[in-house]
Computed example of a mutant assay.
Amino acid sequence: MRLLMLGGTHFVGRAVTEEALARGWQVTTFNRGRTEPPPGVSTLIGDRTGDLSALENGEWDVVVDTWSGAPTIVRDAANLLSGRAAQYIYVSSRSVHPFPTPPNATEDAPVVDGSPDAGEVGYAEDKRGGELAAEQAFGDRALFVRAGLILGPYEDIGRLPWWLNRMARGGPVLAPAPADSGLQYIDVRDLATWTVDAAEQKLGGPYNMVSTPGHTTMRELLEACISVTGSDAELRWTDPDAILAAGVEPWSNLPVWLPQGELYDTLHMGNVDKALATGLRCRPVQETVADTWAWLQTLGGQAPQRPDRPPVGLDPDLEAKVLAQHS
């Protein structure tokens, strides 16, 4: 199989590239050449936003695109490649469904309005426009990988790295109750494995790409972080109302966590039966945590940060204040 990876050096793109290489695929990456791709790939240099000339020649079995900005960028690449690639896989998002999305929502749930001809509007609309751009050029040969929360090595948002580094510091840790609150996410390598499998199966259309609801819990995630870092961190389970009243923001200040309610249902209760029926398998949270920690150690503990996303995490002084009030 011949894969053209648009990007290929960061989080999801890198995982897909490495999975394809492990299967003996011929992999070509297209990016600006500012970071090193994995060994074994052929490299084309260009800029999605203005210079696609390096893509004017060549044929591929599958294109994988992780673009998150203006749909016109997906449109231009897909149109250029439509006659020279057999399949276009666009890594989209479950955010294309309008908020709130009820529990157990499938791929057939309503989606936000989007246009392949739109500039950058907002994350949900941009991802939906990207889907439409891929579909416009490739029809039923377009596959939409609607990812939810993605964790694992190479993460450049900082969610799991923040928790790991917080546990490594040790001491009392603000932990949002209830401890048995279920989490739904996808290890980036499991996403990559399914995506490469889907290319081999020539799947098309939308697929929700997360684990089953309750694949792990907040307790299991945080205890795994303590275990792999070998720290003396002590989890102080605290009522969500008290945390919110102190001005602590779910998801951003305490990554991954959401209190019970519509946002929790939207992000942690999605239906993934369609992906499971086509081979999705999700590794244990302990493996995701351990491998992410091992990767972080190769970087001195400092994870990369996407320039288009704000840093996540809780200010130590605010954490100490909340803990003091509720100890």
Rank of each mutant, 00 (worst) to 15 (best):
residue 206 P to C: 12
residue 24 G to C: 02
residue 250 P to S: 02
residue 314 L to N: 12
residue 250 P to E: 06
residue 319 E to G: 03
residue 172 P to D: 07
residue 226 I to C: 13
residue 279 G to M: 05
residue 239 D to L: 04
residue 156 D to N: 11
residue 310 P to E: 04
residue 156 D to Y: 11
residue 270 G to Q: 10
residue 86 A to P: 03
residue 27 V to K: 00
residue 261 G to V: 07
residue 186 I to S: 12
residue 296 L to W: 00
residue 55 L to F: 05
residue 161 P to C: 11
residue 87 Q to W: 12
residue 6 L to Y: 08
residue 92 S to H: 04
residue 319 E to M: 01
residue 94 R to P: 14
residue 48 R to F: 14
residue 281 R to Y: 06
residue 20 A to L: 10
residue 144 F to P: 12
residue 224 A to G: 09
residue 312 V to Y: 05
residue 326 H to P: 03
residue 195 T to M: 15
residue 277 A to H: 13
residue 128 R to T: 04
residue 45 I to A: 04
residue 30 F to C: 08
residue 21 L to E: 03
residue 14 R to K: 15
residue 177 A to W: 00
residue 314 L to Y: 01
residue 82 S to T: 13
residue 112 V to G: 01
residue 39 P to Q: 15
residue 75 R to V: 12
residue 216 T to Q: 06
residue 25 W to E: 05
residue 77 A to V: 14
residue 287 E to A: 00
residue 208 N to Y: 11
residue 261 G to K: 09
residue 226 I to H: 01
residue 200 E to S: 15
residue 261 G to S: 07
residue 52 L to V: 07
residue 7 G to F: 02
residue 192 A to T: 05
residue 316 P to I: 03
residue 201 Q to R: 14
residue 32 R to C: 10
residue 209 M to P: 01
residue 299 L to S: 01
residue 225 C to K: 00
residue 233 A to L: 01
residue 265 D to G: 01
residue 292 T to N: 00
residue 63 V to G: 13
residue 248 V to I: 04
residue 29 T to P: 03
residue 173 V to I: 12
residue 327 S to Q: 13
residue 269 M to I: 03
residue 210 V to P: 12
residue 302 Q to T: 05
residue 5 M to C: 01
residue 323 L to H: 09
residue 324 A to C: 12
residue 164 L to Y: 01
residue 256 V to M: 14
residue 167 M to P: 03
residue 37 P to G: 02
residue 199 A to T: 08
residue 29 T to V: 15
residue 84 R to I: 12
residue 198 A to E: 14
residue 252 S to V: 02
residue 209 M to K: 15
residue 165 N to E: 14
residue 283 R to S: 03
residue 144 F to M: 09
residue 285 V to C: 07
residue 145 V to S: 04
residue 275 A to E: 04
residue 34 R to V: 07
residue 91 V to K: 04
residue 29 T to E: 09
residue 313 G to Q: 06
residue 38 P to I: 01
residue 123 Y to P: 00
residue 301 G to K: 00
residue 150 I to T: 14
residue 190 D to V: 06
